[in-house]
Simulated scan of single mutants.
Amino acid sequence: VARVHARIADRRRDVLHKLSTRLVRENQTVVIEDLTVRNLLKNGKLARAISDAAWADLRMMLEYKCAWYGRELVVIDRWFPSSKLCGACGMVREKLPLNVREWTCECGATHDRDVNAARNLLAAGLAASACGDGVRPQRESSRTGRSSVKQETQRATAGIPRL
């Protein structure tokens, strides 16, 4: 049983290494969302799939590989309304339950929840990368005056090429 678990862990790690390396090599800027995996694991229906995906390991690999390859990793704050923000007009919906996978904005644009969130995260990450945070105007309906980019101090060795 231990060998089977070790083989599965090795395969998962191999897939994550290949994915993170491909993402970092093909893109100058990688944008990810800062998620609280611990809170997501409390959802009984999603917990197994989330833990199998090893999101924390993927983020760790992206962080150090971006530093190795000289790429930029932008981490968008978890409170940024990426799913609820209309990519066409910029309106933020009040509520959007998890079971709603597609929604239509008042402007007439129809959005797939995940595709819309990915586009909004990319736009926020590229804006933060190019001009600093706060490029998009804060909407009153976002209910947070927080930054879209997570403000973390970088390690002292971040960005220094290894010899």
Results as ranks from 00 to 15, higher is better:
residue 6 A to Y: 13
residue 12 R to Q: 13
residue 94 E to M: 07
residue 39 N to T: 00
residue 122 L to P: 00
residue 89 C to I: 00
residue 64 Y to Q: 10
residue 9 A to D: 15
residue 71 R to W: 01
residue 142 S to R: 13
residue 94 E to R: 11
residue 26 E to I: 00
residue 23 L to R: 07
residue 93 R to G: 02
residue 85 L to Q: 05
residue 161 P to S: 15
residue 5 H to N: 15
residue 16 L to Q: 08
residue 19 L to Y: 05
residue 4 V to K: 14
residue 148 S to P: 06
residue 40 L to C: 11
residue 87 G to Q: 02
residue 148 S to H: 10
residue 80 F to N: 06
residue 23 L to Q: 09
residue 72 E to Q: 09
residue 77 D to S: 15
residue 108 G to C: 08
residue 75 V to W: 06
residue 57 D to V: 06
residue 107 C to G: 01
residue 143 R to P: 01
residue 113 R to S: 05
residue 125 G to L: 03
residue 106 E to T: 05
residue 83 S to I: 04
residue 156 A to S: 15
residue 8 I to T: 11
residue 108 G to T: 03
residue 35 L to P: 02
residue 60 M to K: 12
residue 30 V to E: 01
residue 163 L to H: 14
residue 51 S to D: 11
residue 2 A to K: 06
residue 128 A to C: 14
residue 44 G to C: 09
residue 131 C to H: 14
residue 46 L to N: 09
residue 100 V to R: 02
residue 15 V to F: 07
residue 156 A to F: 12
residue 155 R to W: 14
residue 74 V to I: 13
residue 143 R to Y: 11
residue 70 G to K: 01
residue 25 R to G: 10
residue 84 K to E: 00
residue 137 P to Y: 08
residue 83 S to P: 02
residue 108 G to V: 02
residue 102 E to H: 06
residue 111 H to N: 05
residue 69 Y to V: 04
residue 149 V to P: 08
residue 109 A to V: 05
residue 25 R to P: 01
residue 38 R to A: 14
residue 47 A to Y: 02
residue 162 R to V: 14
residue 38 R to Q: 12
residue 62 L to H: 04
residue 31 V to M: 12
residue 122 L to E: 05
residue 162 R to W: 11
residue 21 T to R: 10
residue 77 D to A: 11
residue 10 D to Q: 04
residue 52 D to W: 08
residue 83 S to G: 06
residue 3 R to P: 00
residue 8 I to E: 13
residue 142 S to F: 05
residue 146 R to T: 08
residue 52 D to K: 10
residue 159 G to A: 13
residue 97 P to M: 02
residue 11 R to H: 08
residue 102 E to F: 04
residue 84 K to P: 01
residue 126 L to R: 00
residue 137 P to W: 14
residue 110 T to C: 07
residue 156 A to C: 06
residue 104 T to F: 00
residue 17 H to T: 02
residue 88 A to T: 14
residue 66 C to A: 10
